[in-house]
Design a protein around this nucleic acid. Sequence first.
DNA 1: CGGTCTATTGACTGGCGTCAAGCACCGTGG
DNA 2: CCACGGTGCTTGACGCCAGTCAATAGACCG
Lengths: 250, 250
Amino acid sequence: MTYGTLHGPAERQHCHKEDPALTVLSDETTGQSAHYRSHEHLLHTGDEAAYSHLIEHGFAVRYHLTLDGSRQITAIYMCGDFIDLRLCAHNPSSDGLVAMGACSTTKFRNDTMSRAALKSAVLANSLCQLSERNGAIARAWIASLGRRNAEQHLAHIICELFLRAQAAGLTNGSQLRFPATQAHIADMIGLSVVHTNRTLQALRAAKLVRWDRQMLSIIDLDGLMDLAGFQENYLQHPGMAVPLPKMTHH
Amino acid sequence: MTYGTLHGPAERQHCHKEDPALTVLSDETTGQSAHYRSHEHLLHTGDEAAYSHLIEHGFAVRYHLTLDGSRQITAIYMCGDFIDLRLCAHNPSSDGLVAMGACSTTKFRNDTMSRAALKSAVLANSLCQLSERNGAIARAWIASLGRRNAEQHLAHIICELFLRAQAAGLTNGSQLRFPATQAHIADMIGLSVVHTNRTLQALRAAKLVRWDRQMLSIIDLDGLMDLAGFQENYLQHPGMAVPLPKMTHH
DNA sequence: CGGTCTATTGACTGGCGTCAAGCACCGTGG
DNA sequence: CCACGGTGCTTGACGCCAGTCAATAGACCG
């Protein structure tokens, strides 16, 4: 059992494009690397998705806009996460996808992705497992939104993000560079910015966490997990060797 | 574009085990039909899942328990939905899965499922698409929990459930038998039972919906969708011919 | 006919939203 | 060099949506 990503358990230290797990799968299916500046969109709300994305560096955020203009972040993607957008291929997407901080991805045309997945059961299986894992994370968010108060919820999402980042090799001891503003956090946990600020202060006062500028420091992970009622099994999944379509630069 | 399930667009009228979409995929991979009474568990919290389930009849509910004992429902499954539990196979599941009303499923051993999916890219792809669709539904729930008030949220989930049920052939005009108590609904939308009751009354007073006993009647679907800000594209996905492992009775 | 489950209603409380103001920081341009 | 606006963080005051605690009534059941 490992915390796995498309990059696999063996290569957790860092994420880059020469990652050996990015095995050639098919000669027709190639990915291109793409770079996004902070706040730049990978996919606009209402657009049809032409590409799926494997995050190589940085963070991307999936969000939904309600009619009154408020925003709810529905997923955070980081290095090694795969965003399978084939379902949006001929549909206007109801979500937007935007870089949080600078972000680079390898993107795969949806039609070629589909063709590759239909040729390789191993690839299709890996995509399925990744999708299930993303679903498990989404359900954990649902539980937090529905049944945890502000402090517990914030603690929970910090635990999740930190453990995922650790598995992806993004952490430095108990530190993580996480380029979120308090507005981002508010949109993740479904609160107002004001209350998010007060909740963050409570966690700081409890000496659980520090969050200066863009640097997240975990002071007391056990304390955070206790407060949140965090059960980490949902992040685990069987380690897998994932052959991904080969990738061409640019 | 159709509202699809594992049973496919052509066989929406009713769900039963002779469904032609349940094509033989592999001779080793067989499903068994299983029957559950109301409140009977398909999977207990903390157990390792041995089977994945295809819902044949009735409804099942996935839920998460927080430490203080409150419950959040994280998904509703109905006829044609597939619950892929292979990720819980060697893990204690953090969720429970329980029948809401009488429910019957075809269940597939996870190990044989995995073997079948590794043999058939078509099957693996279908599972992947179903998983992505479930993820899209989960993200819609996140948006509702985070950024809609009680009335909008309830309206939204009613729209979703009704449209899904309609696609699965479970509706009778604007009516749907839905065996949920108000406690179930409260646990879906993350509210208290008392407030759920008041919110239901508001929708009734607005002549949007009726919900007597276990019969849900949509009076004004457009009104519900307006109130909720419901965008139905997330429920759509490409129609697909899904070969599923063949099934043995009992 | 009591017991349990579910629906409903009222009174009160509290967590979180809203509005508003005040800082701090930063890059730009006069 | 300082004025200026923009963005993000922080704090206070006040109000409302939804939670909690009862209590009642109906439905179903043994």
